[in-house]
Amino acid sequence: MSTAAASNAVAAADFSAAERSAVYRAIFERRDMRHFAGGTVAPDIMRRLLTAAHHAPSVGFMQPWRFVRLSDAAVREQVHALVEAERLQTARALGEREEAFMRLKVEGMRDAAEVWAVALADGRDAHVFGRRTLPQMDLASAACAIQNLWLAARAEGLGVGWVSLFDPLALARLLGMPDGAEPIALLCIGPVHAFYEEPMLQQERWAKRCALDDLLFENRWGTALQTPPPADGPEDPAP
Rank of each mutant, 00 (worst) to 15 (best):
A91M: 06
A143V: 09
V106C: 11
A91D: 07
L94Y: 06
W65A: 14
A145L: 04
G159Q: 06
D167N: 15
A91H: 06
S141D: 05
L70T: 01
D138H: 15
R110E: 12
E96G: 08
V115H: 00
M137V: 06
R97S: 13
L149A: 11
L165A: 14
L88S: 12
R97W: 07
A112R: 00
V115D: 01
A119E: 01
T133D: 07
M102T: 10
A113G: 10
A81S: 12
V75T: 15
A153G: 09
G157F: 05
N148Y: 10
A113V: 06
V160Y: 02
V68N: 00
G161I: 02
E107F: 08
Q78I: 02
A121M: 05
G130S: 09
F101Y: 15
S164K: 04
R154C: 07
A85K: 11
P168E: 14
Q136E: 12
A153I: 07
Q63P: 00
V106S: 10
D138Q: 09
S71A: 15
A117D: 01
M62T: 12
L174H: 09
M102V: 04
F101I: 06
E99V: 10
H80V: 00
G130Y: 02
V118L: 13
V75G: 00
A142W: 02
R69Q: 07
E156N: 08
A91V: 08
L171W: 04
L169I: 10
T90H: 02
R66W: 05
V115G: 01
T90Y: 03
Q147H: 13
M102H: 02
P64H: 09
M62W: 00
A142V: 14
P168F: 10
V163T: 15
A155G: 13
E86L: 12
E77S: 12
P135G: 08
L151W: 07
V83C: 11
Q147K: 11
V75Q: 14
A155E: 13
V115L: 13
P168I: 10
L158H: 09
V163N: 08
D138P: 03
A172C: 11
A170T: 07
G157M: 06
V68R: 09
Q63M: 11
D138A: 15
D72R: 12
R103A: 13
G161A: 06
M109W: 01
A91T: 06
G130W: 01
R87F: 02
V163H: 02
E156F: 04
L151Y: 08
E98W: 01
A85M: 04
G108Y: 01
A172M: 11
D138G: 15
M102A: 12
Q63L: 08
Q78K: 14
E114I: 14
L82F: 06
C144L: 13
P64W: 07
M102K: 14
G161W: 01
F101G: 05
N148V: 03
C144K: 05
L82E: 02
E99H: 11
G95D: 05
K105M: 07
L82A: 04
A100R: 15
E77F: 00
L174P: 04
F61P: 00
A153L: 05
L134R: 13
Q147E: 15
D125A: 14
E99A: 15
R173N: 12
K105S: 07
L165E: 11
A85W: 00
R131A: 13
L174A: 12
R124Y: 03
W162S: 08
L151R: 08
A140V: 14
